[in-house]
Design a protein around this nucleic acid. Sequence first.
DNA 1: TATTACCCTACTAAATTAATAGAGTTTTCA
DNA 2: TGAAAACTCTATTAATTTAGTAGGGTAATA
Lengths: 136, 136
Amino acid sequence: MLSKKTKYGLKALAYLAGQPDKQPVQISEIAEKENISQKFLESILLSLRKTGFLGSKKGKGGGYYLIKSPEDISMTDVMRVLEGPIAMVPCVSLNFYETCNDCPDENTCSVHKLMLQVRDSALDVYRNNTLKDIIS
Amino acid sequence: MLSKKTKYGLKALAYLAGQPDKQPVQISEIAEKENISQKFLESILLSLRKTGFLGSKKGKGGGYYLIKSPEDISMTDVMRVLEGPIAMVPCVSLNFYETCNDCPDENTCSVHKLMLQVRDSALDVYRNNTLKDIIS
DNA sequence: TATTACCCTACTAAATTAATAGAGTTTTCA
DNA sequence: TGAAAACTCTATTAATTTAGTAGGGTAATA
């Protein structure tokens, strides 16, 4: 299941991408337009800023804005930051790999074999979509 | 993240598919070989029986066994029973559809657009894999 | 008829997620 | 220069889900 964090983060990014200019947009505006708890959104935008997707400007007239162009923002990166691992099990994760302590051998594990394909197919989708592609 | 329930269920199915004959296999045997809590596995196998994947035989020499051949068991069906919806958001689910109460319009929703593709790519994988395909 | 193994209900512990509250700090504009 | 606007941070809590545990009950078979 997609977490609310990811859902809200994606919506916020799309909202910022839909702005005519690159003027900062206030948290309160995004929260209201996209029906998101303002405080929760605050923490999400903060993490997107810390990971290099957003810039922020303080003080009057401040807010958040996209640092890069929408077509340069890959869904792969966004999903990893917001949702975490793309793989459904750690033993097939590229960026968050862990061995299964219960499984004797990955190479003969049915779950591993299936989830590897699922991960690759999801990655394909994310790699083929930038922020520009998903904004209406 | 894949739930333990799904992981264990898949492993159990694979174990049963790997049996030479179709003799019933006891829960305790599967639990031991696959490192699964026996009681937890019990509830999983029960749900697989109720959904038509497994048969069971009681009494001495009893246990669980596959009803269909491994090549006739689609991962799509297995995943839906064990893990639930394949879609990551209810608004793109085929079998568990729900509207998002917050979202004004699905057709212009970025999350919807992206998750629709993710669902389809996952479905592709599941449709192309039967139990036979994933057993080593 | 006793044993074996499935069947069922209820409870609990742990983890995660989502949200809330509130205080603090920085920046900007008037 | 000072006050308002807006970001930053920490801590707490409520709700949900997951994973596991416990134990009794029932059915079938040798």
